[in-house]
C-alpha cells in the first residue's frame, strides 16, 4: 500500500511537470487562423493525455526498477501473482471510453475547422512541378502570391497539373493534398486571423525541387486587399478625388456619412463643401478645407447642430497620413 501511495503522488507530480515542460518549450508555430485556434485546443487535450499516460507508465517502471531490484546474492523470485481479471477489464474499458471520447472530440474539432461561410473569398489554386499559381475568379486575377484579406474565410479550389502536391501553411495548421485530374478538385477553407507574411510549402513529396515549392501568402486588411486587387488589375486610382473615394469606402466612413444627401448618423457630404452651418455653440462656420481637416482629425472640436458629439472616432490623425486626409477632403469637395 505504501508503494502505491508514493507512486500515485509521483504520477501526479510528473504529469504536471511534463505538461508544463511540453507547453513551455513552444511546440507550435504562431496561431494565424480561426482553424488554428480549434486545432490547438485539440493539441492541448492531447498533450494533457500524453503527459498523464507517460507519467503513469514511467513512474511505475522507474519505481519498480529502483525499489524492486534484486539484491546481490538473492536468487529468489518476485511476489507471485499472475492475473487479475477485474483489473484487466478496468484497463480495457477505461481506455476504450477515453478513446471513444477523444474520437468524438476529434470529430467535433474537425467539423469546426470545416465550418463553411457563404461569403468566402474564392481562390482557384493550381500546383505544378514546382510552383503555385493563384486565380481569383471573382476578379479575373492570376498571381504567384496568395493575397488574402484578414478575418474573411477563403475557399481554395485546388488542382494539380502533374503529380500530387499538398497545400500547407504551418501557421494556419490545415493541410490538403492537391491532386491532378479535373474531377478531383479539392477544397480547403480557412479564415486567416492575423495579418502578416507566411509561406505555403508543398507538403507532399513531388520529386526534384519539392523542397523549394514555396510561395508567399500575404494576409492584409480589407483596404490593402482591394488596393492589391486594383493594382493587379492596373486600375489603381491616380487622382486625389478617386484615391479619397477608395479611402472613405474602405474605412467605414460611409457607415455614418451619406454621399447622396440622405440623413444618417453624421452629416451628409452631398453639397457639404462651401455650405455654412450652425455649430453646437451657436457660431456659424463655413465648411472649407481647414474645417474639414479639423473635423476629421479632431471631430469633437466643432460639432454641427443636430448631430451628437463623441460619436466619431478621434484617432484618424494616427491612422492616416496627411496625404490621405487631403485626398479624403478632395473627395468630399467633389461632392458639392
Amino acid at each position: 500500500m505504501k508503494h502505491i501511495v508514493i507512486v500515485v503522488i509521483l504520477v501526479i507530480l510528473l504529469t504536471f511537470g511534463t505538461y508544463a515542460l511540453l507547453q513551455g518549450i513552444g511546440l507550435l508555430p504562431a496561431q494565424a487562423s480561426a482553424q488554428a485556434v480549434t486545432i490547438d485546443r485539440m493539441f492541448n487535450l492531447h498533450i494533457m493525455m500524453i503527459s498523464f499516460l507517460f507519467s503513469l507508465i514511467i513512474v511505475f517502471m522507474g519505481y519498480s526498477i529502483i525499489v524492486f531490484r534484486q539484491k546481490k546474492g538473492d536468487e529468489g523470485f518476485g511476489k507471485f501473482f499472475k492475473a487479475n481479471n477485474k483489473l484487466e477489464i478496468i484497463w480495457t474499458i477505461l481506455p476504450l471510453g477515453t478513446v471513444i471520447f477523444f474520437s468524438y472530440l476529434g470529430a467535433i474539432s474537425l467539423a469546426e475547422t470545416r465550418n463553411v461561410e457563404p461569403q468566402a473569398l474564392n481562390v482557384d489554386v493550381t500546383a505544378g512541378q514546382w510552383y503555385w499559381s493563384f486565380d481569383y475568379p471573382d476578379y479575373g486575377i492570376t498571381s504567384d502570391k496568395l493575397y488574402l484579406p484578414v478575418d474573411r474565410q477563403v475557399k481554395l479550389s485546388m488542382t494539380s497539373v502533374d503529380v500530387i502536391h499538398s497545400f500547407w501553411v504551418p501557421e494556419f495548421r490545415v493541410k490538403q493534398d492537391v491532386l491532378p485530374g479535373e474531377n478531383l478538385v479539392k477544397e480547403l477553407r480557412f479564415t486567416p486571423t492575423e495579418k502578416g507574411e507566411y509561406t505555403v510549402r508543398c507538403a507532399e513529396l513531388c520529386g526534384g525541387a519539392h523542397a523549394y515549392m514555396n510561395s508567399p501568402v500575404i494576409v492584409v486588411d480589407d483596404a490593402e486587399f482591394t488596393d492589391w486587387i486594383d493594382s493587379e488589375l492596373g486600375n489603381l486610382p491616380q487622382d486625389p478625388v478617386s484615391k479619397g473615394k477608395r479611402l472613405v469606402e474602405n474605412n467605414g466612413c460611409l457607415g455614418c456619412h451619406s454621399v447622396d444627401g440622405s440623413p444618417s448618423v453624421g452629416p451628409t457630404w452631398a453639397g457639404l463643401f462651401g455650405s455654412e452651418n450652425v455649430m453646437l455653440d451657436g457660431s456659424i462656420k463655413e465648411v472649407n478645407e481647414d474645417y474639414l481637416h479639423t473635423a476629421i482629425v479632431d471631430p469633437n472640436f466643432d460639432v454641427p447642430e443636430g448631430f451628437p458629439a463623441g460619436v466619431m472616432p478621434s484617432n484618424y490623425a494616427d491612422l492616416f497620413s496627411e496625404e490621405e486626409i487631403q485626398n479624403m477632403i478632395s473627395f468630399i469637395q467633389s461632392l458639392k
Binding site: I57, F68, D74, F81, E88, S103, G106
Partner: peptide, 24 residues
C-alpha cells in the same frame, strides 16, 4: 484510436509484471 486499447493492455500488463518483482 481503438488500437490504443489492446496496446494499453500490453503496457499495463508489463508494468504489473514489473511490480514487486525481483528485477535483474
Amino acid at each position: 484510436l481503438l488500437v490504443a486499447v489492446p496496446t494499453g493492455v500490453k503496457f499495463f500488463s508489463w508494468v504489473a509484471t514489473l511490480w514487486q518483482g525481483k528485477l535483474r
